[in-house]
């Protein structure tokens, strides 16, 4: 399968196989007016199988979202066909309006204007908890 190289934009590489679609959704790429390639389960020497997202535009993306979905992903910034920056991603300390609290008893379930904020409470196990009701977030839900 051939996907053209991009001239100006972002390549999110080494996404754990199967998480590309979730990242695509959480980054809101379906609403962006630009070409996006979501490539799933390609062979990788580094990690066996991986997903890749190529965004053919200089749009801004939320690096916290990438870190939440997959802190092992890498981000390459491309300008004029050249790699100008390679960014390593880290687990974000806080997520604002990335995921919603699923606890029906949480105050965010009735007050829609409140920001949905989650804090990283256990780095080792990648646990995020709602700052209001402390409900644990399950990745991708």
């Amino acid at each position: 399968m051939n996907i053209d190289s991009i001239t100006n934009g972002i390549v999110i590489d080494h996404i754990t196989a199967g998480r590309g679609m979730l990242l695509y959704d959480l980054l809101g790429l379906n609403n962006k007016d630009c070409s996006v390639a979501l490539i799933m389960r390609v062979n990788s020497r580094k990690c066996g199988k991986k997903d890749i997202i190529k965004i053919d535009s200089n749009i801004s993306v939320d690096f916290d979202v990438i870190g939440y979905v997959d802190p092992n992903a890498t981000v390459n910034i491309i300008r004029d066909g050249k790699l100008i920056e390679k960014r390593n991603i880290e687990l974000p300390e806080k997520l604002t309006n990335v995921i919603k609290c699923k606890n029906p008893r949480c105050i965010t379930s009735v007050e829609q204007e409140l920001d949905n904020i989650f804090k990283l409470t256990d780095k080792e196990n990648m646990v995020y908890r709602c700052i209001y009701c402390e409900t644990k977030a399950k990745i991708g839900k």
Binding site: N103, C106, I107, T108, L114, C130, I131, Y132, C133, T135
Partner: peptide
């Protein structure tokens, strides 16, 4: 009755 309301 809602969890987190006093925090808000």
């Amino acid at each position: 009755p809602k969890e987190g309301a006093p925090y808000v």
